[in-house]
Write a protein that binds this DNA or RNA. Sequence first.
RNA 1: GGCGAGUUGGCGGAGUGGUUACGCAGCGGAUUGCAAAUCCGUGUACAGGAGUUCGAUUCUCCUACUCGCCUCCA
Length: 480
Amino acid sequence: MTTLKLHNTKTRKREVFEPIDRDNVRMYVCGPTVYDRAHLGNARPVIVFDVLYRLLRHIYRADHVTYVRNFTDVDDKINARSADSGRPIAEITQETTQWFLDDMAAVGALEPDHMPRATAYIPQMVTMIEDLIAKGHAYAAEGHVLFAVESYKDYGALSGRSVDDMIAGARVEVAPYKRNPMDFVLWKPSDADTPGWESPWGRGRPGWHIECSAMADELLWEKPLAEDRLSESAKERPHVFDIHGGGNDLMFPHHENEIAQSCCANETDSMANYWLHNEMLQVEGKKMSKSLGNFFTVRDLLDQGVPGEVIRFVMLSTHYRKPMDWTQKKREEAETTLKKWYRQIGLSTAVLDNDVHSGTTNALTEDLNTPEALTNCHALSNGGDYSQLRKSLYLLGLFDGNIPDWVKVKGFSDAETGLIRHFLNRRENARASRDFQLADKMRDGLADAGVLVKDTGAEPEFERLSNFNVNKLDELWGDV
RNA sequence: GGCGAGUUGGCGGAGUGGUUACGCAGCGGAUUGCAAAUCCGUGUACAGGAGUUCGAUUCUCCUACUCGCCUCCA
């Protein structure tokens, strides 16, 4: 059996992954708050955990893995967006959710088995909050319900902080109704203009952290339990699941709070056995931010003609636990490499079965070493093993069985293609009569207009360059 | 201030207690009328200091620098 090793944030070590139930490996990853287009940084955890999902399905088989990724569709940022735009909240969240799914599909991410929306799980959250109050871990105050961090002795264990340290360095606003400055909100009151649900504490809405605790437990424990899909080994570890993932900026406070809520409510010593965190994304060496002017969305890139596969390749070319820099140069290199690989695997008709080259799987099972997996793809490419290259790219999510259109399409309209063909025919005549001066002049002219000509084999090939200018092409026609 | 991650050749980026990363760029060659593409070959590295060791880029400590989190940003 394949041995999968993962770096567990809980222990800060690379550990052998042993699922609670190998017939149903369960993973939860924090999803987006749906109020705007996903920026490029949002795509990193999606792609990282998509690779893990694919790998788990490869090892344990597709129907033995359950992957949950939520949508946070109740949040103050959404409320603010609605107030600014005058649009209904439901319209914003539905539209943004679909955008997210479209954009992530474009970068090759499979849809998780469950994609719960927070607003559909309010009753479960209320129940969990009531439970926490009953067990002495939470208290109601002025319409709020707060989690009492001092009631949970392991608070801070994941991120390696003590409550005292946190208070010392805290810059949080200390609300008067908090017993401890680090206590965080489970439930907060809503006014008439804010989305709210009736609860024992009045009309209000959930805090952010409780969403994930409630939805993870519902979909990875209660639901499979009700459907009798949990093995005996799973039942021996009530409420605990295998993997919890997210960006490392969520480690504190979000994941810390999730653990506190889940462990206290469920009376367990653990929420998930393995915690995985991806590092952040930078752009041209700097943190992506609106003030620096280097902020852009996945959709922006796609609209600029950057293929989703190229975005994914660049993401995979850096290990997930290292900061990753998005640069124009990487984008270009990725495109060049992928074009070559797609051309090569197009020569193979190998069935996309589970027989994937060990160099690729061994890299991935060593804590998702995607750069090394890509190196192995280079080796397969250079070695001419296009069948195995095909399967490796499939496992990595860079190939879905069809060569992407952007590799095949040259990017010209029919009229432009006709014009270029005319040129090349005349140039071929010049070449045939060994008038290389004229032939080279024509090629230079086309290059200047943004058309790259390659004299390969019988018929010359041509492709569109980024500086393509149809007006220059027309001018050329006048010159000849 | 607290916690954490990192510093590898021109660039990107893995990995290892003693041996080739790999990719791009460069250089040389094949091929081509010339280019492009393709193929073959090839040089350059492990932040600094101390320690452990027969031997460290790889382990330990220190220093410098970079970055992230501590603020419901993935």
